[in-house]
C-alpha cells in the first residue's frame, strides 16, 4: 500500500539552523494497517506525515502509494489518495462555510471541480446519514457555519470529511491533543470506529502511549528523525506502557528525561 523508501528531510540545509527532521526513514504499510506513531518532541513524527502528504518535498528518498510514485507530486494532487486530520481543530475545516458546504468539498476530494452546483441532488441525505453516525446532533444543523462549532465537534467533522470519500491512506497527527480529555476520548473512539468500518489504512501520531497500545495493530517509535522500533501485532498485544518506556530508553539517543513521552 504505502512504501516509504529512505526519505530524508533537512530543513534549512547549509545554515546554522540546519535541522535533519527525517533521517533515511523506511516504512512499509499493508492494506488495512492501523499504525500508531510515538516519540518525543521533535522526533520527526509530524515531519513523516507531512512528507507523505506533500506539505514539503523531501530532500531525498521516495514515497509510493499502490506503486504510484508521489515523491514529486504537489500536496493537492496527493489528496486524491490521502485523507488528513490535523492537530489544530481549526485547520481541517472552512470556518465561514456551512457544514454541508464543507462536506460537499470533502466528498469531491481529489476530483476536478466543475461549474455544477456545489451540493448535488440527493447529496444532503448522504451528509445527514453520515453526520447522524457521529452522534453529536450535527445532522440537524447542516446549514450552520462550521466556525460556530466547538473544537471537538469540528474535529469529529474533520474526521468525517477525511473519510467520507474513502482514502487509501488516513493520516492523523495528534488529532485529539488539542481537545479536553473526555472529548478527546470520544473523538478517538469515533476514529477507531470509522477506521474499522471502512477498513482504512491509517497512520496515527499520538503522545499517549496507552492510546498507542490500545488502538491499531502496530506501533512505531521515532527518535531523532529515525524509526527506532517497530512493534508488530503479536508483540503489541501484551505490551505495557513500562515496556515501551524501557524500550525507548534502550534505543533512543536523545534520552527520555523531560520528554513528553513520559507524560503519557
Amino acid at each position: 500500500m504505502l512504501k516509504v523508501e529512505k526519505i530524508t528531510k533537512i530543513f534549512e540545509p547549509g545554515t546554522v539552523s540546519e535541522k535533519v527532521a527525517l533521517n533515511q526513514v523506511d516504512l512499509v504499510m499493508n492494506e488495512g494497517d492501523f499504525v500508531t506513531v510515538i516519540g518525543g518532541n521533535g522526533a520527526g513524527k509530524s515531519s513523516l506525515l507531512n512528507a507523505i502528504a506533500g506539505r514539503f518535498e523531501v530532500t531525498s528518498g521516495s514515497i509510493f502509494i499502490d506503486g504510484t510514485d508521489l515523491t514529486r507530486q504537489p500536496e493537492y494532487k496527493r489528496a486524491q489518495w490521502i485523507g488528513r486530520v490535523f492537530q489544530d481543530p481549526m485547520m481541517g475545516t472552512a470556518a465561514n462555510m456551512t457544514i454541508e458546504e464543507n462536506l460537499s468539498i470533502a466528498l469531491r476530494r481529489g476530483k476536478i471541480r466543475t461549474l455544477n452546483w456545489g451540493i448535488g441532488k440527493g447529496e444532503k441525505e448522504v451528509y445527514i446519514n453520515h453526520l447522524a453516525q457521529l452522534d453529536l446532533g450535527l445532522e440537524t444543523r447542516i446549514k450552520t457555519k462550521v466556525g460556530l462549532l466547538s473544537g471537538g465537534q469540528r474535529q469529529a467533522l474533520t474526521l468525517l470529511m477525511a473519510t467520507i470519500k474513502k482514502p487509501k491512506l488516513l493520516l492523523l497527527d495528534e488529532h485529539t491533543a488539542a481537545l479536553d480529555p473526555s472529548t478527546g476520548r470520544k473523538v478517538l473512539s469515533l476514529t477507531d470506529k470509522l477506521v474499522k468500518e471502512n477498513r482504512l489504512t491509517t497512520l496515527m501520531v499520538t503522545h499517549n502511549m496507552k492510546d498507542a497500545i490500545q488502538y491499531g495493530n502496530r506501533i512505531i517509535m521515532m527518535d531523532e528523525g529515525r524509526i527506532i522500533a517497530d512493534i508488530p501485532l503479536e508483540k503489541k498485544k501484551n505490551i505495557q506502557v513500562e515496556d515501551l518506556i524501557s524500550l525507548f530508553e534502550k534505543t533512543s539517543r536523545s534520552g527520555i528525561a523531560n520528554d513528553r513521552l513520559l507524560l503519557a
Partner: peptide, 16 residues
Amino acid sequence: RATGNNVYMIRAMGVD
C-alpha cells in the same frame, strides 16, 4: 471560498 478561508484544508481536499 474555502481557499480564502483555509488554504490547508482545501489543499488537503485536492484543490490547487
